[in-house]
Design a protein around this nucleic acid. Structure first.
Lengths: 124, 124
DNA sequence: GTAGAACTTCACATCGGCGTCAGGTTCAAG
DNA sequence: CTTGAACCTGACGCCGATGTGAAGTTCTAC
């Protein structure tokens, strides 16, 4: 499929797809004319990439990670590097901290809302 | 106290403190020479600001919010606007969504770590 | 009065994923 | 062959809190 269809099927802009390729997250075959051509399983990969981005991982970390995940054909690929494993657990901790922070923030915001409500309009 | 001490006591850079003032989050008296002078309770306020920033609120939202929180002297200040209340619940929802997203992402990352571990070094 | 730490304002840089415009080429259908 | 949609590359812009550096002023301790 070409980039437009991939974009439509994944909900990711063509700009982003080209960016992913530039960052080494996606590969594409090219038509004689230079248009990108994607395999079916690329859809899954793009979605996976999106999830990882949503987790706050940077493109270079994702780039190192992707070849270690088993792909379309179920073949496990490269073995995870020691450094990669460390990076991953670092990311996991970061996410945990982020969640904890947000939870605290949410509590504070609740408190704030209550406090602010003290001075609320009482029915004019 | 002056800006340096405030920075030390809050762990916030002087740059940020000046930025907060520029955005209307902090006020300061000035010495005849133009140096900023802060009251004691400013420490608490800065910490509160930090928390709100950590919650992902933008400075203008915080600026609208701060005067509605009771301050140093326990006096409730301005009443919360209707729009402010709406903004706040919007923020609360945003945070809830962010937490949900991160939780999902964390789960994916865990799965990823497991998957990547499949190809792990087995003891060489 | 003098050194030097602390402060002032101004302004440019950063990060990173992506929007978006520009100018040109390729593809698919008629 | 022609037309219009889809695609290409390249480059600049953005957001927003903060780092950073410059050049000048003020405060404090001696």
């Amino acid at each position: 499929m070409r980039i437009g269809e991939l974009a439509r099927r994944t909900g990711v802009s063509t700009r982003s797809l080209r960016y992913y390729e530039q960052r080494g997250l996606l590969e594409s075959a090219r038509t004689p004319g230079g248009h990108r051509q994607y395999a079916e399983w690329t859809v899954d990969r793009v979605i996976r990439i999106q999830t990882l981005f949503a987790a706050g991982l940077h493109s270079d970390v994702i780039a190192g990670l992707l070849p270690c995940m088993h792909d379309h054909d179920g073949t496990p690929n490269e073995r995870a590097t020691h450094t990669l494993a460390e990076e991953l657990s670092a990311e996991a901790e970061r996410i945990d901290r982020a969640i904890a922070d947000l939870t605290r923030s949410r509590a504070v915001l609740d408190e704030v809302m209550t406090t602010a409500r003290l001075g609320r309009d009482d029915g004019s």
